[in-house]
């Protein structure tokens, strides 16, 4: 029989998830976000350009559309930036934390002993910058999965090993 104790837990003494220092995403990931945004904008602009060229009536109204488009792009840019800056992750001894959100700050925490499986995802653009996305899955469905983008490939591999190691320890 193991030594059994049943002391009262002092809640104030527990490790606090809200004081954890979060690690930021790789600066290169911002480039990936920007290039993606640029590609979207480019496709949109080409589409608009074709319409401008083909439809005469469109030319008079074009200026408003361009302005709207510009505003949308600016907002998307700002939001992407905020979203990028606010994303952060931390690996503690017993759980993984991921912070994200634009107007809200969401923090999701998965204890290692609840991790079901792990995947490494490399988008074609991310791969060019040597980045990967670590995806951590639980049995709680898609809302409780953590997907951390913008991690260096090597570090991502290490994280995967760490997570697998942690899962192993449970047995």
């Amino acid at each position: 029989m193991e030594q059994f104790s049943n002391n009262t837990i002092d809640i104030k003494q527990l490790p606090r998830f809200e004081t954890v220092a979060f690690q930021k995403l790789e600066p290169n990931y911002w480039k990936v976000v920007l290039i993606n945004l640029f590609i979207t904008v480019a496709i949109l602009s080409i589409g608009l350009g074709i319409v401008y060229y083909l439809v005469d009536e469109f030319r008079k109204e074009a200026i408003y559309l361009v302005i709207t488009l510009g505003v949308i792009i600016a907002i998307t840019f700002v939001f992407s930036r905020i979203s990028f800056v606010k994303k952060g992750f931390a690996f503690r001894e017993h759980d993984v934390l991921f912070k994200n959100g634009i107007i809200a700050t969401n923090t999701i925490i998965i204890p290692y002993n609840r991790v079901q499986h792990v995947a490494l995802h490399e988008g074609w653009l991310s791969r060019y910058f040597g980045l990967a996305k670590v995806e951590i899955f639980t049995a709680g469905g898609s809302s409780s999965d953590i997907k951390i983008p913008g991690i260096e490939k090597e570090q991502a591999e290490k994280i995967k090993q760490l997570l697998m190691g942690k899962i192993q320890q449970q047995l």
Partner: peptide, 8 residues
Amino acid sequence: QAVTTSQL
């Protein structure tokens, strides 16, 4: 399985 906290 996991916990999410959220604050505006």
